Computed example of a mutant assay.
Amino acid sequence: MNEISKKEQLYELIRANPFISQQDLAVGLRLSRSAVAGHIASLIRERRLLGRAYVLPDKRPVLCIGAANLDRKLRTIAAMQLGTSNPATAEEVYGGVARNIAENLARLNLPTALLTALGDDGAGRALRDHAETAGIDMRGSLNLADTATGTYTAILDERGELVVALADMALYDRMTPEFIDSRLPQRAAASMTVADLNLPADSVSALLDSARADNVPLILVAVSQPKMARLPADLTGLRLLILNRGELETLAGHALPTEADVRLACRAVQARGARDVIVTCGSQGVFHTRDGELAWLAAHEVDVVDVTGAGDAFSAAVCWSLYQGSQDLTLACRRGLKVAAMTLESHETVSPMLASDILDEIQDFYPTPIPPMPPLPPTYSSFEPPLFPHKD
């Protein structure tokens, strides 16, 4: 077989598995390691590969980093009685902010990978199988034999009100800066990184260090008010921070009752180095930074079936819009509100109706005039359901 056909055969093997080793390529093609390296160098010069991890130009994924949980909801059938057994209904769904965003992106037809931590148990295997079936690349995730997969369990009364919630998510503390560094080839292969704040603070800092060095856009998504403490003081290199109003209040250290207050808080985040900020306000809509100011978009009016996952769907659609090359956050938020509305109308955490052509239909035009922002209520209800006050 001539050298040209050998190179083409090597290229096809890399297309099938972008993380294949040079040793495996050499064995499969009956070539020396030096010959394989020469062919790879030639493909990189031709821009058919983009360097580390043999990144193919049309295959660079969005890399999501953070939580993948098994969420359980237990609801009593009659009035709850403490200290005894209560008849109840039970539901289990796949959750976790990073996982939810990854599944939405995969359904929107983007190449998507997820770095998370899973226990060596039934829940971990089910989460992995479900993700891979959805088209999410799980290679590189941390598999822990000595701990259980993350879970979030909510106990509800007969009215659906939260009685108590239990979160077992300590395993994400094992996603240390050393783990993040060990996945450098996979991270370098990404077109964009989306991380949630279930990661340890030092790991979030490590991702920001990488974003400053390699210019791969980094988007951080908040998960709860207590975990805002994991956001580093220096946000230089951060393309976008997505959080809700309550989380922004925690970051600011005080209530934000007016639009002017939200604007000043967003400017403070930008002064710390973040390029842009999106603040979700539940059923009302979203704020976002735009040309040094603060823009407002109202949410869609929908018949809500289940609010679970709508906030993560919003974040995914924003990421999808940025992935397409548009830097217009107003367009990105309009797309996000569309996908959030679809999720609110679905029984599923990720709407099965999602497809990229739905977002293609939303182009860069804006209503004139933009509807005014209604007064902000003193209490805040996010996209996430009351029974999950912390998205985690």
Rank of each mutant, 00 (worst) to 15 (best):
A170T: 15
R187L: 06
T147K: 05
L207F: 02
P185D: 02
L220S: 08
A165L: 11
I180H: 13
T193Q: 13
A148W: 12
I155A: 13
R128H: 13
L184V: 15
A170C: 15
A154K: 08
T133V: 11
A131N: 10
A190D: 05
G122W: 03
M169H: 14
D214N: 03
G150C: 04
A134V: 03
G160P: 02
A148N: 12
A106M: 02
A154Q: 08
D157V: 12
R159S: 11
T112K: 00
Y172I: 14
E132F: 03
Y172E: 12
G160R: 02
I180L: 02
M138I: 11
S210W: 14
L220F: 06
S182T: 09
A201S: 14
L156S: 06
M138S: 04
D202A: 11
T193V: 15
V194E: 09
N198E: 07
D214V: 10
S191F: 15
A206C: 12
D121L: 01
L218E: 05
L199Q: 02
L184K: 10
N143E: 13
A211P: 02
P217H: 01
A113M: 03
A211M: 10
A148S: 09
L218Q: 11
T116E: 00
R174F: 10
T133G: 14
P185V: 08
M175E: 00
D157E: 05
V194L: 03
A106N: 05
A190W: 15
P111I: 10
L171T: 13
R183A: 11
G122M: 09
L127H: 00
L118H: 02
A113S: 04
P185W: 10
A117D: 01
A165R: 05
A145Q: 01
E178F: 09
T116G: 07
M138G: 01
T133K: 07
S210I: 15
L166S: 09
M175V: 11
E161R: 04
A131K: 08
G140I: 12
L197C: 12
I155D: 15
E158V: 14
S191P: 07
H130D: 14
A189C: 06
L142C: 00
R107T: 10
N109I: 13
E178C: 06
L218T: 14
L118V: 00
I136L: 07
L144T: 04
N143Q: 15
A165N: 12
A206E: 08
